[in-house]
Design a binder for these strands. Structure first.
Lengths: 201, 201
DNA sequence: CCCTGGAGTCAACAGGCGTTGACCTATGCT
DNA sequence: AGCATAGGTCAACGCCTGTTGACTCCAGGG
């Protein structure tokens, strides 16, 4: 029984992810997670210190974005859509993140982090469609230039891609609008693809 | 002091909306709303019966969609985008709805209701871009036909429009991705427009 | 064989929550 | 003037929460 701590820790995390994802931060209680894992609530505290610690551990996540291949943009977008749908169907942590980003400051912050660390750089590495000057740095505020369409700052394009993906996920997995929730993964990807492509152009 | 109940009721609702919108359902307490309104918690119960009653009253909402004018679709989408941005900037109830749709069953249900009662019929009334047969009835499940692009069921197109709008709102108002949150209303509408147009075509 | 220390339990705490029912107060009708 | 009543307060209830510290148990090294 000496090295069993890690096993228990992992089992706690597993149930915590399930509950955070299903009901959000507030409605998930240390006690309910402990009961689901078949242990004492105090043990959860021993492992993660605090409820927020457990939460933080539960939403460690990687989007595993494929390296931006040299494909036509439409095809690239379709691949990306397939990737996201597959990931979303198989990764509870993503639903946790989406649910808690809406209500808990920590969730929103983590979601921003995933965006700035993973999505934004990926889009920035892409050849700009319009004819952008390529400034992708720590430029946060909208830089005055409000082109009617087409060429945009990389960070803006990245944010729009994120909004397309998150909006789709929100409607399909969280709000569960019937028309979207009932789709097969392939259908879903087919419908999400063009939305992504629009903002990569 | 005889007819002051309505005034008080309205003040309660005002503060309730602010708090639900800022922190979601769980973190908003009857006590904190009462304190903000300068009254006793018990009075809130007298007016709304229960916390869920207060919540339900706080998210009565109308999108006030303009009648679908006979405009080119791109222009129509742009108008719609402006309308949504303006509405979102001025209506706390919308933020409440978005925040709570992610965590509370009642919120999700209400969001679905707003969608089916207001967005879906509006889109259905539009002339289909592709060459649709015009079945706009209570057809919920994806009806097998998975065209690669273009012509789609009205309910699917409506759902995609909703996902575009909600995704944008989520990133701009809730997660507050800097590139989107910093935009002026006009800029925001300019960027949201094409996403809507894509799904109306 | 004892004894150290990690793994886990137990009971309790302090505080916040939604909700309730008894109570007060002042207004407007008769 | 007197009373019914709407509008509002007060103190308390039972419950659930995150968190804590003392306690038990047992594997393994000396």
């Amino acid at each position: 029984m000496r090295g069993s701590a890690d096993v228990t820790r992992e089992r706690i995390l597993e149930h915590a992810r399930a509950q955070f994802g299903a009901t959000g931060f507030e409605r998930t209680t240390i006690r309910s997670v402990a009961k689901a894992a078949g242990i004492d609530p105090a043990l959860v505290m021993r492992h993660f210190g605090t409820k927020e610690g457990l939460f933080a551990a539960a939403i460690e996540i990687s989007l595993e974005l494929p390296p931006p291949a040299a494909l036509p943009i439409d095809e690239l977008a379709e691949r990306l859509a397939e990737h996201f749908v597959r990931l979303w169907d198989s990764t509870p942590a993503l639903q946790i993140l989406l649910r808690t980003a809406a209500t808990h400051p920590l969730g929103a912050e983590r979601m921003r982090a995933v965006f700035t660390d993973q999505v934004a750089p990926w889009v920035a590495r892409l050849p700009a469609g319009g004819g952008e000057t390529g400034d992708t740095g720590t430029d946060d505020t909208g830089t005055g230039d409000s082109g009617t369409d087409g060429s945009e700052t990389a960070s803006v394009r990245a944010a729009l891609v994120a909004s397309a993906v998150l909006g789709f996920a929100l409607c399909r997995y969280v709000i569960e609008i019937p028309a979207l929730a009932a789709m097969s993964p392939q259908q879903a990807a087919t419908h999400l693809g063009p939305s992504i492509a629009l903002h990569l152009h």
